[in-house]
Write a protein that binds this DNA or RNA. Structure first.
Lengths: 131, 131
DNA sequence: CTCCGTGCAAACGATTTGCACTATG
DNA sequence: CATAGTGCAAATCGTTTGCACGGAG
């Protein structure tokens, strides 16, 4: 656990958001100006591999990293691409229902709810006023 | 609807699989050797925009295109990345449950089941035999 | 000393774009 | 003849990697 690894982890946990590698890079640079983006990527990979954080491959281009490594689902905003945690209980029933599909052995699932976040809804209203 | 557009669409529908742009490119090249990958990308974008096909952003690197534009969920194989359609009914209840989340206006959801497909399971067995 | 982790820059894979050209309406 | 669509190559974006160096054990 190097110095840079620790700062990356701390900042991610402190923000309590689902950040991309380069968002986190910008933040960490303030505390450690000579850090490189590659180091951020490498450490995020190591940390998620170790189960300390989660890695999200939500629709869109960039991966995001989750301060909470527990299995859970996400909701994301189609406008600003912000991602939040969902707290929906995953019933065993669901998993059982899936087990029969097309010869697959089911190992898990990912539910991704899509919507427009509070902030973006407000922005929409603003826009309509001005037009 | 140009000639190349038509062939791209036909081949995708004929294959009844969830192909990536470059897989489709390889297929279409046989019928139309001078076509470029950019054209395949452009037309897949246009076709999915028009609702004739679907665009999938499943975990992993490449986008896949779906011959079936209807809303439905998918299962994909973690080993070979093959994607198949799911035929799980989406109840209104589900959507209602989601509506309350964190100030979001929910517009939809995407369920992605993860597993190992039939073919890859068989390959696993083979490997074990040989080792 | 020995290595693992770093910073940098260059490489990479997937996708997109600028441009000149071609077919089609 | 106007213009939407093409092929090609170069550009772009997010991410990964090779390499020489530096610092901790």
């Amino acid at each position: 656990m190097t110095n840079q690894r620790e700062i990356i982890l701390q900042e991610l946990q402190k923000k309590k958001q689902h950040l991309t590698a380069d968002e986190l890079y910008d933040i960490v640079k303030k505390a450690m100006p000579r850090i490189s983006l590659a180091t951020v990527y490498r450490n995020l990979e190591i940390l998620s591999e170790a189960g300390v954080i989660g890695k999200l491959e939500i629709s869109g281009r960039q991966k995001r990293f989750d301060y909470d490594p527990e299995e859970h689902d996400h909701i994301y905003c189609v406008v600003c691409h912000r991602v939040d945690n969902l707290d929906i209980e995953r019933t065993d029933d669901d998993t059982k229902n899936m087990a029969s599909v097309a010869g697959y052995t089911v190992t898990g699932y990912r539910l991704e709810i899509v919507g427009i976040c509070d902030a973006c809804q407000k922005k929409e209203v603003e826009k309509e006023k001005n037009s």
